[in-house]
Amino acid sequence: MIVIEDVHKSYGNQHILRACSATVSLGEVVVVCGPSGSGKSTLIKCINGLVPFERGTITVDGVSVSSPKTDLPALRARIGMVFQTFELYPHMTALQNVSLAQIHVLRRSRAEADARSEKILARVGLGDKRDSRPSQLSGGQQQRVSIARALAMDPRAMLFDEPTSALDPEMINEVLEVMQELALEGMTMMVVTHEMGFAQRVADRVLFMDRGQIVEDAPKTQFFTAPASERARQFLTKVLTH
C-alpha cells in the first residue's frame, strides 16, 4: 500500500533521512518510534509530499509521490493525516472543519458533507460539539476532531504524526482509544509515537529510527522482546522504565 524505497533527505549538509526503506501493507498498523530528531516526522511527511525529498521513491497505491506527473492533491485526499499540534482551522466550527475538504475536494454538497461530518464526530465521541470552535475544546477533543476531519475523506490510509505528544496526560487515552478502534476496523495506519503501550496493544510492526536511518523493522513482539540493535535496546530501556 505504502512503499518507501531508499529515501534521502537533507537540509544543506545536514542529513535528515538516509536510505530509508519500508513498506506498509493494506490493513497493517506500523508504529514508528525513536529518539527526537531521528527523522520520524520528516519521513511520515514525505509520504504525502508535504516534505519533498531528494532521492528514492515513495509510492502510495502504486502512485509515485515525487513524480511531477502525479496529481498530488488527489493523492493526499486519499491519505488522512493527523498532526501533533492538531491544526484545526480556528475560524471554523468543529463541523465546518470536518466538512471543508469534503465540499471543496470531494465535491460533496454542503448538506451531504455535514451529514457525514455529524456521523463521524459522533463516532469519535463529539456529537454534541459540532458547533464549538477549536478554542472552546480541550486538546483531546481537538485532536479527535482532527481525526474526524481526516476520516471524513474516506481515506485509504491514515498517517499520525505524534498525535498525543502535545496533550495533557489525562487526555492521551481518549485519543488513543479512537485510534485503537480505527486499527481494529482494519484501517491501514502509520503512527509516529512515543506511546509504547499503544504500540504493544495495536501495532503489527515497529520501525525504530535513529539519526535519519531505519535501524530496525520488526514484528511487534520481536521488537519488544528481542530487539536486534543495541540502539533500540537502549531506547526501549529508557522509554519502558519511565
Binding site: Y89, A101, S146
Partner: peptide, 26 residues
C-alpha cells in the same frame, strides 16, 4: 501558523484553496 497550510494541503486542497479558505480569513 505554517501547520495550517500543511493541514489543508494534507486533506487534498490545492494551494489556492488553502490560501482562500484557510489562510486569508485568519
Amino acid at each position: 501558523r505554517h501547520g495550517q497550510s500543511d493541514a489543508g494541503l494534507a486533506t487534498g486542497l490545492r494551494r489556492a484553496q488553502v490560501l482562500r479558505l484557510i489562510i486569508l480569513p485568519q
